[in-house]
Computed example of a mutant assay.
Amino acid sequence: MSVSEHAPRYQVGDRKPFRLLDLMLAWESVLVVLLIMVVVVNAWISPYFLDVFNLSDATVNFSEKAIVALAMALLILVGDIDLSVAAIIALASLAMGLASVAGVSTPGLVLIGLGVGAVAGAFNGLLVTGIGLPSIVVTIGTMSLYRGIAQVVLGDQAITRYPAGLQALGQGTLFEMPPLPWSFAIFLGLALVIGLVLHRTTIGRRLYAIGNNAIAARYSGIRVERIRFWLFVLSGLAGGLAAVLLTGRIGSTRPNIALGWELEIITMVVLGGVSISGGSGSIPGVVLAVFVLGFTTFGMSLVNVPGIVINVLLGVLLIAAIAAPLIVRRLVKGNR
């Protein structure tokens, strides 16, 4: 029994009778309570937390990770994982940097970032679905490969020559008041689209079916390997989009760009209730987890908590989110 199984399965056509107890026990309800606690505590320890401009800055700090987390959620839902997402960001940013030095304009840089991300994701998918290698092994290898390429090409140098248009995309806002950063607006739009596809279409039903039992899904006529392949492409594409936004925001490409992001991204997904073994989870849960983690880390940074302490917290949350379902299952069995 996974954490997300406290809630309805979120499959197409699911119309279970409404029960208040089910709502109270839903993992999304727990995340809502956690989010309220995070906001209250941060507002108490720092008078600057609820400032509208500070909150806007907070969303900028986690929006690129959140975009990748949406794609990662679908991968984990079907029983796969992509540990190379942060390295894909570095590789796509490197390609954009080299193209920018060569004089490519902003639209071209955006296409290059997205294209490199999609190709890197397709390479992962080909190794996993074409050859049959485990996704965790493949993406550990490509994580080193993609990051290594960036390190070899750049060394200890940085590319800082980018057009103003790209920086406006990474640093600009859709609205001035309240300030809505482009990256956050894109995340919200993608969350809405992916949530509707997963929870309201037959595509979502197929993803749940694959995650619950890939063999049975294959025998029922679902093209399992093709779907898994395109999910890896989607993951790479999300990494490319994150590279576009992140590179524009910081205005530079370095070999350590997005270093360690894979831990935070996976934590967002698992804390959001997506079972690490696949088959259950929801996009609303992932979105709530994004806000919980994003505001938690932002609040700690406002009171000058060291980054290493924040990393420790992320590790503890990841272990807790994975271990919680096992503990609950044992307690339930012990009470029978």
Rank of each mutant, 00 (worst) to 15 (best):
M1K: 09
M1H: 06
M1Y: 08
E5D: 09
E5L: 12
E5W: 04
A7K: 00
P8G: 05
R15F: 10
P17S: 09
F18L: 07
L20N: 02
L21H: 04
L21F: 13
D22Q: 00
L23W: 03
A26E: 00
W27F: 09
S29K: 02
I36W: 10
N42D: 09
A43Q: 08
S46K: 08
P47M: 00
Y48F: 15
F49W: 12
L55H: 11
L55Q: 10
V60P: 05
E64M: 14
E64L: 05
A69H: 04
L70T: 10
I76Y: 02
I76N: 07
L77C: 06
A86G: 01
A86V: 02
I88R: 03
I89K: 06
S100R: 08
V101G: 01
G103T: 01
G108K: 01
L109R: 11
V110C: 05
I112C: 02
G113S: 07
G113H: 00
V116M: 13
V116I: 12
V119C: 07
L127N: 07
V128S: 12
T129I: 00
G132E: 10
S135D: 05
V138A: 05
T139V: 12
T139F: 04
I140Y: 04
G141D: 09
G141R: 05
T142R: 02
R147M: 14
R147S: 06
R147H: 08
V153A: 13
V153L: 08
Q157D: 14
A158H: 02
I159S: 06
A164M: 14
Q167P: 09
Q171Y: 14
T173F: 15
M177G: 09
P179G: 13
P181G: 08
P181C: 04
W182M: 14
W182F: 15
I186N: 11
L188D: 06
L188R: 00
L190F: 04
V193F: 04
G195C: 10
G195Q: 02
G195A: 01
R206F: 04
Y208H: 15
I210S: 11
N212T: 14
I215G: 03
A216D: 07
G221E: 07
G221C: 03
I227C: 06
W230S: 05
F232I: 08
V233C: 11
S235Q: 03
S235M: 10
G239F: 02
A242D: 01
V244H: 15
V269M: 07
V270F: 00
S275V: 05
I276T: 11
G278F: 08
G279Q: 01
G281Q: 06
P284Q: 08
A289N: 03
A289L: 09
G294K: 10
T297K: 12
T297R: 11
T297D: 08
R330G: 09
L331W: 13
V332W: 00
K333Y: 13
K333Q: 14
